[in-house]
Amino acid sequence: MSLVEIRDLQMHFPLGGIGGTLARLRGQAEPVLRAVDSVSFDVEAGETLGLVGESGCGKSTVARCLVRLLKPTAGSVRYAGKQIATLDAQAMRPFRRDIQMVFQDPTASLNPRLSVRSMVEEALTLHTKFDAKERRARVEELMHEVGLGRDLLDSYPHELSGGQRQRVNIARAIATNPRFVVLDEPTSALDVSLRSRAILLLEKLREHLGLSYLFISHDLATVKYLASRVAVMYLGSIVELSDTRDLFAKPLHPYTRALLAAVPVPDPDARRDDFTLAGEIPSPIDVETGCRLRGRCPLAKPICAEKPPLKEIAPGRFVACHLVAELSS
């Protein structure tokens, strides 16, 4: 049994507004934004699963459904075998200790009016039976764990640098000894040198504390470094899921290939794959039937009018493309 199992996850947001009202009055289905459409994957204990895709592909929505900041429209989210997709806030509480999240913006996710100590301690007050002394000891231990000096404990977020703020966020997330941490673009807001340090810190913590990560990012180089497997999302669906090494060595889905080809490589002599897609990501409101990449894909054939299933084409390698046989040869 995997630590986290997601099956056919769907998250649709009703658009509301005048269009919604008119549709309701006419007795039609209200228009919705299909942010996530039948997404399934597992996260094994101790692994880092990378989730990549461009802005608006639904990766953060998946994360929010997973930590239950959102209630999915349909589908199941199992954590350690238990269904959590439908739990209410009260029933969800015991799981909050085990499932934590680090957000993209290290500044916006900290309370500007609380000191570092109170923010990290808050998680312990809520989720543990520690007394004040034990909490203090644990906070100091956590500061050490994420590489922050004890002298920063009484600082406020505005007194910290971006890298230090993100460390506070990480300390707070691991305070309750979680088993699963969702990292939503945790390194994107950091400068080059801080980014590599944050990457190494996350890797060290995973090994140290036996954590499992869902690592969400649009930075493919970082994902390649941290993740053992990678899922690629496009317009609300997973188009490819594979071992990291295989994926980067030979991307199979046309979208993955275009995505990788677009990453600038720090080597002036690198030969570039000039595979590109036409146009830009369409709106997730009126999505095409069939393969959603159809309108932009240079390889599209008539069969692509049917929705391609996410098929296992080699052990552990899943691709949602009708043309996968041709592509892999």
Partner: peptide
């Protein structure tokens, strides 16, 4: 990129993860 002469330039190049090869990250 091939013959960086300043230690800072070298450190900068070694501090980034990359898609084109496996590297050992060394933060500056």
């Amino acid at each position: 990129f091939h013959n960086p002469a300043h230690p800072y330039t070298k450190a900068l190049v070694r501090s980034i993860p990359r898609v084109d090869r496996d590297v050992v990250l060394e933060p500056i």
